[in-house]
Amino acid sequence: MDFNIIDAHSHLWLRQDTEVNDLPIRTLTNGRSLFMGEERQMVPPFMIDGRNSAEVFLSNMDYAQVSAAVVTQEFIDGIQNEYLTEVINKYPDRFFVCGMCEFRKPGYLQQAKELINSGFKAIKIPAHRLFLKEGRIMLNCDEMMEMFHYMEDKGIILSIDLADGDTQVQEMKEIIQECPQLKIAIGHFGMVTTPHWQEQIKLARHTHVMIESGGITWLFNSEFYPFAGAVKAIKEATDLVGIDKLMWGSDYPRTITAITYKMSYDFILKTTEMTQEEKALFLGKNAERFYGFKNLVSLPYIKNMSE
């Protein structure tokens, strides 16, 4: 490959110990977690202590020849700002990390300012988790809009996962109109297997909006490798907004309970439905430009014992 691969959607944590919708999420053993009332295989079973550390991820990245990764956050993992501060200080050339606030109750504007002042260059909103028992938190409410204006002024990236289909698209349109210079990365490829997913993709017709494919192999898991439906969706999104607006993301580590980390992008390398330039842009060059990665490492291919 004559380009560096960058993962635009991944997760790190040392332990899950949180609640979502009053339901507990706790790290167990052998890669399993108590997840909102049931036991789930959260990470591969060989991660017996449940620690989803930067070092384990780097080992996977080095093996798969992935030069760098964007670490996002999700409420189901708990807020990981403290650990991610350690990660970015220790591995600044390998990771770009997103801070996350407690968006489910007022006061997150001040939290965002503190995170930005401490050095975070992006803020993550798991917006699909903002449909609470006590009511929906709107993305265009006053406190959110004030935060977005602050982020725009400071050059901070918004990383956001939206609810299925076009549920929150109108709110996003208002944000983009109000903050046209705000850089936005929309995750999960618009929840591509749900109706009206294309409406999320179309948001990338705006100059500073990008789409990343974190979780696309999970969404097409019923097909399994080589994920022909995912390739077809990437081609459709390319027709809608152009390949220069799309980025690959793995959603590591949850997706590698079903496939290896390398398989989460290898199906792109092997498809004949995309050109070499399209593959290079999707797998790395777009993310390198959008997130401003510098000093990317080039990793050698290490031959497997099974070859």
Rank of each mutant, 00 (worst) to 15 (best):
N4L: 11
D7I: 14
T27E: 07
T29H: 09
L34D: 02
E38R: 03
I48A: 07
G50N: 06
M61I: 06
Y63C: 06
A64T: 05
A68Q: 09
Q73V: 03
V87H: 01
V87F: 02
M100C: 12
F103C: 14
F103W: 10
P106A: 08
P106K: 03
N117Y: 05
K124Y: 02
L130C: 02
E134L: 04
L139T: 07
M145I: 12
F148E: 10
E152P: 07
D153A: 01
S159T: 14
S159R: 08
Q170W: 09
M172E: 10
I176A: 01
E178I: 11
P180K: 08
G187N: 04
R205S: 13
H206P: 03
V209G: 01
S213A: 15
F227D: 09
K235W: 00
E236K: 05
L240F: 13
V241I: 15
V241S: 05
M247V: 13
G249I: 01
S250T: 02
Y252F: 14
T257H: 00
A258L: 09
I259Q: 01
I259P: 00
K262I: 14
D266Y: 11
F267Y: 10
I268C: 12
T275E: 13
K279V: 08
A280E: 09
G284V: 03
F293A: 07
N295E: 14
L299T: 07
S306E: 11
S306P: 04
